[in-house]
Write a protein that binds this DNA or RNA. Structure first.
Lengths: 215, 215
DNA sequence: TAAAGCAAACTGAACGTTCGGTCGGTATTC
DNA sequence: GAATACCGACCGAACGTTCAGTTTGCTTTA
């Protein structure tokens, strides 16, 4: 067997282990998941697991890094939306892109909560601390331009884009990861579209000539 | 010792155990916390712990019930605000009342996440499933009246009050429980006041005669 | 081409420790 | 003396981790 294939073989083992560990950590927590569970779920032996990973926490660490890479990938649809900086015109696209991410990453998102509880957020702290800066980088200049052009009212668009993003993440996380669908008492589509209307027009009623037909 | 005092004595033991368990569960998770840790942190013996609680999960269960009682107490300031149904005029009061609750309940809130991870949300599901109904009960009639009186624009005020409440809870939870202060890149006061402005006026600029002075 | 060599992949029994939970017993109070 | 509060030694099971040893498959040597 050529060397490349042998390498591929062990990479498959590692991938299997990570996949099994993700499923177990996200549904039971870190401490509640044993190396034997990971081993038998991934078809590896306990010894082999320790051949590929220095210890249990190293597996957890690698999973967090996988998530980080996925979420910061410039190719990710959500990131292409951010980079265009067309907020809030692209709110609908943002919402479906975030739903997509939450759907695709559901177990990884739960891992974040596992980290907060069992490791005091040690593995994810940096990610959240850097969030505001990443938004500043994506939107800062454009927003300052557009604000000078009178495009926004009193409202700070930077806060708005962060609120919108985090709210949508939170909403879909509760719906899809926490197992509480319809927690606002309506379908996700309805909830999201009402949320976007709220973001755009606000609660204070507008004068007659404002956009949008009353219903 | 009179009966009342003896009862009080064992109640103190139970309270100590619950307090210690809360601290441990919320900072390490359920499985990662041992009965011996709870025992030594509360000054009880392992045997005594099992005298007062049938098993470890029963301790967890009681803590969740404590939280539930606290949060649904009609005397709680946040609930007096809800019962007045003056949203969104009382947004500022709501924000500080929610900050108060999060501050007071920080460990209990983390317990919710522990439950989601380690018990599939078994102990808290009912609470979140009933949330929309509780808002309907508090705000339904008043909002329908006020809407007919033209007090709201296109925006659904029921969605707005739930978004506002959940957002503020989420925001303060990340700030105070997850250990990521200033995660929106600004002080909590600034973030909350910008959020409220966003809720009230929306992103779309208003015509000249609209309330609020431009800055 | 066949044998020898070798490093990586892999195995599973075993280690010391800790776990949740039990139980026989003592101290205290009525 | 009955009942409650409490203690801590104890149980079997499971834990994370180790390790001596086997298998595998490519490379080097003859």
């Amino acid at each position: 067997m050529p060397r490349a294939i042998q390498e591929a073989k062990s990479e498959v083992s590692i991938a299997n282990a990570l996949e099994a560990a993700l499923k177990l950590f996200s549904s039971q927590g870190f401490r509640a998941t044993s190396m034997r569970q990971i081993a038998s779920a991934s078809g590896l032996s306990v010894g082999n697991l320790y051949h590929h990973f220095t210890n249990k926490e190293a597996i957890f660490q690698q999973l967090i890094e996988q998530y980080w890479e996925y979420i910061l990938d410039p190719q990710l649809r959500l990131n292409t939306i951010f980079s265009k900086a067309e907020f809030p015109d692209d709110l609908e696209e943002m919402a479906t892109a975030i739903e997509e991410v939450v759907e695709a990453c559901a177990p990884y998102i739960l891992l974040v909560y596992v980290d907060v509880i069992e490791f005091e957020g040690r593995h994810v702290r940096a990610f959240y601390e850097g969030m505001a800066d990443r938004f500043e980088e994506a939107y800062g200049d454009r927003f300052r331009q557009r604000r000078q052009a009178g495009e926004f009212g009193d409202v700070n668009p930077m806060v708005a884009v962060m609120v919108a993003t985090r709210w949508l993440f939170y909403f879909f996380t509760v719906e899809k990861c926490f197992g509480v669908p319809m927690h606002l008492g309506m379908s996700p589509q309805k909830a999201v579209s009402e949320f976007m209307k709220l973001l755009r027009y606000g609660l204070e009623p507008r004068s007659a000539q404002a956009a949008g037909s009353p219903n």
